[in-house]
Computed example of a mutant assay.
Amino acid sequence: MPKPPSKNRPSKDVGPAAQKPAEPMDVAPDFSLDAHHAELPPEVEANRRAIINSPTYTLAEKDTEWLRDSSMRPVRMQLELQKTEVLLTREGVKSTVVVFGGTQIVPREEAEMRLALAKEELDNNPDDHGAQRGVIRAEARLKKSRFYTECRAFARLVSQRCQTDGQCEYVITTGGGPGIMEAGNRGAFDIGAKSVGLNIELPHEQEPNPYITPELCFQFHYFAMRKFHFILRAAALVVFPGGFGTLDELFNTLCLRQTGRMQAIPIILYGREYWDSVIDFQKLADEGVIADEHLELIDYAETPEEAWGIIAKFHDVK
């Protein structure tokens, strides 16, 4: 088993919600009680109130409008980096198993419902190309619904093996959204284990899936900071079928491993039939744009047990 986390963990009372006495600078003076101000000429009193209410007089740490200014982007990025790092440390998360995959891969019953709706739409519009494509796509999603079930089982298996006796090693970490991400967090939730969700602010509203450990759910504005935290504690990456976002995260990790810019981890593509149909890695090597040994950065798995076996062997987990 992985070594247990350090016993020198901060007490819970140092969390962000902990109460502390207000510092002198946090206590606003009650200007209304100052008799002297009642004697000021009206125009001076108006100016005094304008001073007190001016945004420039707001403490920088409390001035959210200022923090949103474009000039403060480096500060906002640092805050996203530091907040997540501090709180993961406080929760004792030592290492993670990162799970990527598509948002559209849903449980079988939901996939069946979506297919039924697509067929109904086609029945009503038999000559509509969009309706025809809708059925084809819904059938493909139904075929891949097994990955939701298997991802959930994988996350449950990893959490059972690595979150015992207070340990927080190999904590399942996802992007916090629906689909495969939900399945990963749900598997840990099934057995009462912790899991992390690194959500991202998007143009359309997205709520985190309901299976993430509340204290370990984070929202990011910057993809770069989110990607950094995916990799920082990663002991393994397991990639289920997905689209642009999944491919982006996969190739980001492959590039970092190829160039030696991150720790050695297994990168496991789950469901080889899908991955072979989407990406011809061998062709990249044959064309000479990657080295033959770079193909060894990738492993393949077809079952939750096989995926965990690759991770356990890589890290010599008994």
Rank of each mutant, 00 (worst) to 15 (best):
P2D: 15
P5F: 06
S6W: 08
K7W: 11
P10H: 06
S11W: 07
V14L: 14
G15F: 11
G15H: 13
P16I: 15
A17G: 07
A18H: 08
A18V: 05
Q19P: 11
K20Q: 15
A22M: 12
P24A: 09
D26M: 06
A28D: 15
P29N: 12
F31M: 09
P41H: 04
E43A: 08
E43Y: 03
V44A: 13
S54L: 00
P55T: 04
T56A: 14
T56M: 10
T56E: 15
T56V: 11
Y57A: 09
L59T: 01
K62R: 04
K62Q: 01
D63L: 00
T64W: 10
W66A: 12
S70K: 12
S71K: 13
M72K: 06
V75T: 11
L79W: 05
K83E: 10
T84A: 03
E85N: 03
T96G: 01
V97R: 01
V98N: 08
T103A: 14
T103L: 05
T103V: 11
Q104C: 10
I105C: 01
P107A: 08
R108Q: 13
E109L: 10
E109Q: 14
A111T: 08
L115D: 08
L117Y: 07
L122P: 03
N124S: 14
N124Y: 06
P126M: 11
D127F: 05
R133H: 04
I136L: 04
R141W: 10
L142I: 06
R146Y: 04
E150L: 10
E150F: 02
E150R: 03
C151K: 05
R152G: 02
A153I: 06
R161N: 12
Q163V: 08
T164Q: 12
D165Q: 09
D165G: 02
G177N: 11
G177I: 07
I180W: 04
I180T: 11
M181L: 06
A183L: 02
G184V: 01
A188H: 06
F189R: 06
F189L: 02
D190R: 02
D190C: 02
I191C: 02
A193Y: 05
L198Y: 00
H204R: 15
E205P: 00
P208A: 01
Y211H: 07
I212F: 01
L216A: 05
C217H: 04
M225D: 05
K227G: 00
F228E: 15
F230T: 07
F230E: 09
I231C: 09
I231A: 12
I231D: 14
R233F: 03
A234P: 08
A235R: 15
L237D: 12
F240D: 11
P241R: 07
G242W: 09
G243A: 15
G243Y: 12
G243K: 08
F244R: 10
F244V: 15
G245W: 05
T246N: 09
L250P: 01
L250C: 06
N252C: 10
T253A: 13
L254F: 08
Q258S: 15
Q258M: 12
Q258K: 12
M262Y: 03
M262W: 03
Q263Y: 06
I265A: 03
I268Q: 05
V278L: 14
V278A: 09
D280A: 08
K283I: 00
D286F: 00
I290R: 04
A291H: 06
D292N: 09
D299A: 09
E302M: 00
T303C: 00
P304R: 00
E306I: 01
A307H: 04
G309C: 07
F314Y: 08
V317P: 00
K318S: 14
K318R: 11
